[in-house]
């Protein structure tokens, strides 16, 4: 699936929720399923420190495709990371580096990626894209 198709799929999954708490219950469940970063890789160079919650991200390239694992100390942040990784995983470095993450706004989670939210997610998206750029230049 392309990055575009996965985003469309997520949007339609979220369409069923008309209550915010149901939506967040789903995000929390996603957080529990996140491909967790190897604890040994939870090092400072993989840490994105937000004012409120912390995010660790590891990026590798396998057979020309990006592979991400991550973790956070807050479970809602983890759920949103889970969504971001689902979109970006197994994609080419080019696709990740130039990704337009329109699904975030469509499913009403844009507040989590606003600069004032300070949960490390903005930094994480930057790092996802940077790692793809590095892979391109390698």
């Amino acid at each position: 699936m392309t990055l575009q198709e996965i985003q469309e799929e997520i949007i339609s999954e979220f369409d069923v929720f008309d209550d915010w708490m149901d939506k967040y219950e789903y995000i929390i469940d996603l957080g529990k399923e996140l491909p967790i970063i190897d604890p040994l890789k939870k090092t400072d160079d993989r840490l994105i420190e937000g004012c409120q919650s912390k995010v660790w991200l590891d990026a590798t390239v396998v057979d020309g495709k990006m592979q991400f694992t991550a973790d956070s100390d807050a479970i809602i942040t983890k759920g949103i990371i889970g969504l971001l990784i689902r979109v970006m995983n197994e994609q080419s470095p080019e696709a990740v580096a130039t990704a337009d993450l329109f699904f975030i706004q469509k499913i009403g989670l844009q507040e989590h990626l606003s600069p004032t939210r300070s949960n490390g997610l903005i930094g994480m998206v930057k790092k996802l894209k940077m790692s793809a750029l590095q892979a391109l230049n390698a």
Binding site: S53, A74, I75, I76
Partner: peptide, 22 residues
């Protein structure tokens, strides 16, 4: 076992404004 950020986010969605963090 629960991060303050998570509680703050869920309270917000229930119309309740509290502060979380340091």
């Amino acid at each position: 076992g629960i991060h303050p950020f998570d509680i703050g986010t869920l309270l917000d969605k229930q119309g309740i404004a509290v502060r979380t963090g340091h």
